[in-house]
Nucleic acid binder design. Structure first.
Lengths: 76, 76
DNA sequence: TTGTGACTTTAAGTCCGTC
DNA sequence: CGACGGACTTAAAGTCACA
């Protein structure tokens, strides 16, 4: 899986969801990273769909945002 | 993340969901692997929660099972 | 048909920084 | 605050032989 591939993928949709929810709560990437126990640069990479996130980290982010995982995949 | 850790995690719940759905459709791990474009043993590892699956592979499996991703996280 | 250990390759994920 | 890069460590991806 190439880091630079442009396919309109689930990763992009997921990143958009995370960003939208983060902004709605007025959190910086740094704050969200802190809450999720992840690194600040990594949150940015997820939002830009540069990394293929694992299930456990999906859960950490969902928890940090206080949303259900299903909310992050709504129209899928 | 230790392969042997016993934490009742999201990985276990996900594996159970996949197995339940696979059996409901009377598919072998091998058949599902073929449909998903993944390896036979890998599907087994996912069902037994030995691998922290990434989002793209979650999608492949959901597609192969013809279910929505949200269905695989229903009561989360 | 599935589980498991061993294994190599690739990518996830961290941490430093600059713009 | 966020995008992005380089270098790095750890873990996932992916495969195999055999139980």
């Amino acid at each position: 899986m190439n880091k630079k591939s442009k396919e309109k993928s689930i990763l992009i949709l997921f990143g958009e969801k995370v960003r939208a929810e983060r902004l709605k709560q007025h959190l910086s990437q740094e704050k969200l990273a802190e809450k999720a126990g992840l690194h600040r640069t990594y949150i940015g990479m997820i939002e830009r769909a540069e990394k293929n996130i694992t299930l456990e980290n999906i859960k950490k982010i969902a928890d940090a945002l206080k949303v259900k995982i299903t909310n992050l995949f709504e129209e899928l």
